[in-house]
Computed example of a mutant assay.
Amino acid sequence: MADTETAVPASLTRRLIAEAFGTYLLVFGVIGAALFFSTPDNGGALPVALAVGLAVLTGAYAVGSISGGHFNPAVTIGAAAAGRSRWADLLPYWIAQIVGGVLATLTFGLVGVMSGKDLDFGAVSNGFGEHSPLGFGMGSVIVAEIVATMLFVLIILAVTAAGSTTAGFAPLAIGLALTLVHLVMIPISNSSVNPARSIATAVLGGPDALAQLWVFLVAPLVGGLIAGVIYRPLFGGPKG
């Protein structure tokens, strides 16, 4: 959930803690579900999409009033470009989001080590070519990630706008939107739309995941930036 136009910001420290917590929850949900339920016999993409949507929904309700509930560097850059948050907060938010996401992945790494199970973080990392679930190439994945992230951030900006009739239900709308995006994107790239999520799994995903990571940093950030730039010309509304 991006900052609402009428929100009064908390201290930066509180906001960063909230962002780290929310991103931890998001990655905990999506990666946990992907590790344990992503095979066709266990439900395929649906449990993963539902988990990430529920994680964002509950995280936004829990701490969205503190930090704006971005939990995603692409949302933060989109909010800044749309005038909803300060550019000065961009880097601190990104650092907090990355830390939260990596800690969530390390939690599962620790669970795997303590249980003696070999959890395949490479399989749940984002990828293209042979690392795409359906074999989509790099160009297709870049286009899909940009468009999916742009649509997601546009929805966030719309439902958190001042005067929005859905303002009280913004986290619900955002969680459902992210579920929709993941249902479409998981077969294409394992669905990033969030550089912090991609970094988190690539850390333990092996050399191939790290080599392809740049796509899932650049494409979502470009999508989020486009959304922030075009939101007001398309949908109107004063700068927050």
Rank of each mutant, 00 (worst) to 15 (best):
Ser192Val: 07
Ala34Ser: 13
Val218Arg: 09
Gly163Lys: 10
Gly163Gln: 13
Thr23Trp: 00
Ala227Tyr: 00
Leu217Tyr: 06
Pro171Phe: 05
Leu180Tyr: 06
Ala144Ser: 15
Leu213Ile: 11
Pro195Thr: 13
Ala81Leu: 15
Leu50Gln: 09
Phe121Lys: 01
Trp214Leu: 12
Leu183Tyr: 04
Pro133Leu: 10
Ile98Asn: 13
Leu25Asp: 03
Pro9Met: 07
Val184Lys: 02
Ala79Trp: 02
Gly129Thr: 14
Gly32Ile: 04
Val8Trp: 01
Thr13Cys: 05
Arg232Ala: 11
Phe136Met: 14
Ile31Trp: 00
Ala34Tyr: 00
Ala104Glu: 07
Gly100Asn: 07
Ala170Lys: 07
Tyr93Lys: 13
Ala34Thr: 06
Leu16Asp: 09
Pro171Arg: 08
Val30Ala: 09
His131Ser: 13
Arg84Cys: 02
Ala200Asn: 09
Ala60Gly: 11
Met114Asn: 12
Phe37Lys: 10
Phe152Arg: 10
Arg86Gly: 05
Val203Gln: 09
Ser125Val: 03
Pro207Arg: 05
Ala45Pro: 01
Arg86Val: 00
Pro9Asn: 14
Leu217Gly: 06
Ala161Gln: 08
Ser67Glu: 07
Leu234Asp: 13
Gly228Thr: 09
Ile155Trp: 00
Phe169Tyr: 12
Ala33Gly: 05
Pro73Trp: 00
Asp3Ser: 12
Gly29Tyr: 03
Ser132Leu: 08
Ser38Leu: 01
Ala177Phe: 02
Phe121Ile: 06
Asn190Trp: 00
Ala173Leu: 10
Leu16Thr: 09
Ala7Lys: 08
Val56Lys: 04
Ala81Phe: 06
Asp208Val: 14
Asn42Ile: 00
Leu46Met: 14
Thr107Trp: 05
Val102Gln: 07
Ala202Glu: 05
Pro9Arg: 15
Val113Ala: 15
Gln212Thr: 08
Leu154Gly: 04
Phe216Leu: 10
Ala81Gly: 08
Ala144Trp: 02
Leu154Ala: 10
Phe216Cys: 09
Ser65Cys: 05
Ser11Tyr: 03
Thr13Lys: 08
Thr107His: 13
Ala104Lys: 04
Leu225Thr: 15
Ala173Asn: 10
Gln97Tyr: 02
Val56Leu: 15
Leu54Ser: 03
